[in-house]
């Protein structure tokens, strides 16, 4: 079965799952947390008949203070760097138990959830192993807030160029992060898995349908979700969704899918909004000059053009 034929019920505004929150209110995420919103939408798309595996991080710690838990489905947290490996074991177990008649007679998606540090840095090896082994019911969701927010806003390899963090600070000899954001979706796609997607909580239906597709495909799927962090980005909390929207319209975080190696841009931005509009609300970019913005825009546009090129040469059909 090809990834784009995987059967799933599309979420629309009309049939939106408005039942009880499966990430229950009462968790300790910051005010206006874009990652909590992304996670809430991811879980809402899935319901409760799946198994969630969390890496250590903001979403893990703010939802699981004993004896409380926000998770309405079976959930396990083991450590920081190994959500993909734990999920591999869970996935194998559910399949074997079903086969041996000791499990439930249904397909149980296993969904690993980690931040950008737990994915692009410390968890990369475990993730690569899991994608390569081609686990049948395996979904990996990276909730990317572009730094180690849980430990106090240190840079990760997913921190964007020139963003100021506590370990890539702006100073007399530094203009913030001096490396470009690691392209995790491309790394995931290089494993030849059936489904890779980027998503944003500002486009909630798009995000939820990508998650549903990821859970429906046979074989591993990787979804990279943009997760604005007002606290770490030095931004007003009410701007979390707007910043996510501007990231897409300015091309700095394009929304696209890779289905069986074919590309599709979901929210094309032929006439992008100015990057400065996206940067302006965020204190982590406060030091940028017009020249800096123009320099970044060149790279952002060239990355975007490459995606357009891939989508034209290898369209989903």
């Amino acid at each position: 079965m090809r990834a784009f034929e995987a059967p799933f019920e599309r979420v629309t505004n009309r049939n939106f799952p408005k039942g009880p929150e499966v990430l229950a209110p009462g968790h300790g995420a910051c005010q206006g947390c874009g990652e909590a919103l992304a996670l809430r939408l991811v879980l809402k798309a899935l319901g409760t008949e799946f198994i969630a595996v969390s890496a250590t991080g903001c979403m893990e710690v703010c939802t699981s203070r004993f004896p409380n838990t926000s998770w309405q489905m079976p959930w396990i947290h083991v450590a920081f760097e190994n959500a993909a490996a734990v999920a591999s074991g869970v996935e194998a177990a559910t399949r074997v138990l079903k086969r041996k008649g000791r499990g439930h007679d249904q397909r149980i998606p296993v969904v690993a959830l980690a931040g950008d540090g737990g994915t692009a840095d410390i968890g990369l090896q475990a993730l690569s192993g899991a994608l390569e082994r081609f686990h049948e019911n395996f979904v990996y969701v990276c909730l990317d807030n572009e730094a180690y927010m849980n430990t106090g806003f240190q840079r990760s390899s997913a921190t964007p160029f020139r963003a100021s963090t506590t370990t890539s600070p702006v100073g007399a000899c530094s203009k913030g992060q001096h490396t470009w954001k690691k392209n995790m979706p491309a790394i995931a796609a290089a494993h030849g898995i059936p489904y890779v997607a980027t998503a944003s909580p500002a486009f909630h239906l798009d995000l939820m349908n990508k998650i549903r597709r990821a859970a429906a495909v046979e074989g591993p799927a990787y979804v990279h979700v943009f997760s604005p962090c007002p606290t770490g980005w030095l931004m007003k909390p009410e701007l979390a969704v707007e910043s996510a929207r501007l990231a897409v319209s300015s091309r700095i975080f394009p929304l696209y899918e890779v289905l069986d190696g074919s590309y599709r841009i979901n929210r094309p931005a032929p006439n992008p909004t100015p990057l400065a509009d996206y940067f302006r609300a965020q204190g982590r970019y406060r030091h940028l000059t017009e020249d800096d913005v123009a320099f970044i825009a060149r790279r952002v546009n060239s990355d975007y053009e490459r995606l357009v090129d891939l989508a034209e040469r290898r369209p989903v059909s």
Binding site: V78, E81, N82, A85, S88, V90, A93, Q125
Partner: peptide
């Protein structure tokens, strides 16, 4: 299921996941 993991760290991580899921 024999999971040919990519490291011993993942061997134990996968074992924890599998045992937690009832295997």
């Amino acid at each position: 299921d024999y999971i040919p993991v990519e490291s011993e760290h993942s061997a134990m991580s996968s074992s924890i996941g599998a045992a937690a899921a009832g295997a």
